[in-house]
Computed example of a mutant assay.
Amino acid sequence: MTRQIVLDTETTGLSAADGDRIIELGCVELVARKPTGNNLHLYLNPDRDSHEDALRVHGISNEFLRDKPRFAERAQEILDYLRGAELIIHNAGFDVGFLDKELELAGLPPLATHVAGIVDTLAMAREMFPGKRNSLDALCDRLEVDNSGRTLHGALLDAQLLAEVYINMTRGQEALLVMDEAADGAGAGPASGIDLRRLVLPVIAPTAAELAAHEALLTQLDKASGGKTVWRNLSQPG
């Protein structure tokens, strides 16, 4: 059964390459596209202060993080939780870049070697809604996901919202999932096909009023085209 983890981070700034670090990690587990409640939420000591712009986004003070564990201290727990799952991340390149840097500093292989794959919901949204705003807030509004509690960014809250957004964006997969589960169920045999030869389609005859309305419309179209309508020509005897 497919296990997915919706993941979000908050950071001290925008550039892992320039020394910014992860300060919060939020993960929401989905199994068969349904939240399980087996979430992971950590605050982490970055050993540096957040930039003022970042503070305005997440509101997590430097003082609050002073006594929190460092990423390296919790790295194995994080990897054990993520291992083998498909990750769902909005603007995945940002979060993966930070996670890879933290793993490198902890002497561990990059994220992709521990997980089954990574889905970028920002790329999905840009394909589904070209030319529109596709931030998490914009997608919540468009897909009717309640984000009224999101006054500041928070990794766990954002992961919970993204889980709802992702499920709404991929509604069409539910039917496929039901078929897969039926095929994979205990004792289930091969999926049976539908014999279309036994399918009888009902024939609904038009009423006299419907036929008259249809004929009137055809007459109007014929008149508008100067008698050049194809169906009139085909209906004449050869």
Rank of each mutant, 00 (worst) to 15 (best):
5 I>A: 07
6 V>T: 09
11 T>A: 04
12 T>S: 05
13 G>Q: 10
13 G>D: 14
16 A>Q: 04
16 A>R: 02
18 D>V: 03
18 D>M: 10
25 L>T: 04
34 K>R: 08
35 P>W: 06
36 T>W: 00
37 G>R: 01
38 N>R: 14
50 S>D: 02
51 H>E: 14
53 D>F: 15
54 A>D: 06
57 V>G: 13
59 G>R: 05
61 S>P: 04
68 K>N: 15
76 Q>F: 13
77 E>H: 11
78 I>S: 01
89 I>D: 04
90 H>F: 04
92 A>Y: 03
93 G>P: 07
95 D>E: 07
98 F>N: 01
98 F>I: 00
102 E>H: 00
106 A>L: 08
107 G>P: 03
109 P>E: 02
118 I>M: 07
120 D>G: 10
121 T>F: 10
127 E>V: 11
129 F>I: 08
130 P>E: 05
131 G>A: 05
141 D>E: 13
149 G>T: 08
152 L>D: 05
154 G>E: 14
155 A>C: 02
163 A>E: 08
164 E>A: 10
167 I>R: 13
168 N>E: 09
174 E>K: 07
176 L>A: 13
178 V>H: 12
180 D>G: 10
182 A>F: 13
182 A>L: 13
193 G>I: 15
198 R>P: 08
199 L>A: 01
200 V>L: 09
200 V>I: 14
201 L>D: 06
202 P>T: 11
210 E>Q: 15
211 L>C: 10
218 L>Q: 09
221 L>P: 07
228 K>I: 05
233 N>T: 13
238 G>C: 08
